[in-house]
């Protein structure tokens, strides 16, 4: 595990299963806003902030992997990416909250959010290799 690697997420099952998870209670936009704030404080993005293949109003979960570097200058590439993502999500008329969805559907979205992050979480050493999150309680 690298020092300073943090997963910012509103996917509580995933958050509980990784080292260095930071849970955001709220929408996908709240997650992106938290990531943007971290970038302003010197963090750099390790994963692209946009979700793959689902519109913002379709996927209630969002997870962004960052590396915190306290006191570092702002990483302009990260700032540009996260600002664009926040703008795209902010322009979306209605963003669902995880609790808006029926349990079975919510589990599927939480599962796919994890699956799209799995490789990155393993790569940066914050996902224990044996334990996988259980999505029954989201």
């Amino acid at each position: 595990m690298r020092n300073g690697v943090v997963l910012i997420t509103n996917n509580s099952s995933l958050c509980g299963a990784v080292f260095g998870g930071r849970l955001v209670e709220g929408s996908s936009l709240d997650v992106l806003t938290a990531a943007r704030d971290a970038v302003h404080l010197g963090a750099s993005l390790l994963t692209h902030p946009l979700c793959g293949n689902l519109r913002p109003h379709q996927q209630p979960f969002r997870s962004v992997l960052i590396e915190e570097n306290p006191g570092a200058l702002v990483d302009l590439e990260s700032l540009s990416l996260i600002d664009s993502a926040v703008t795209i999500y902010r322009d979306c008329a209605r963003l669902p909250l995880p609790e808006d969805l029926e349990a079975a559907v919510r589990r599927d979205y939480a599962f796919v959010d994890f699956e799209l992050m799995r490789d990155s979480l393993e790569r940066y050493g914050i996902l224990p290799r044996i334990v996988s999150p259980v999505f029954g309680k989201v």
Partner: peptide
């Protein structure tokens, strides 16, 4: 080729393209 994870993957000669 789409290669982001489960159900988003593509294979070349059986190799995971990601």
């Amino acid at each position: 080729l789409q290669t982001q994870g489960l159900l988003h993957d593509t294979y070349l000669y059986g190799a995971d393209v990601k």
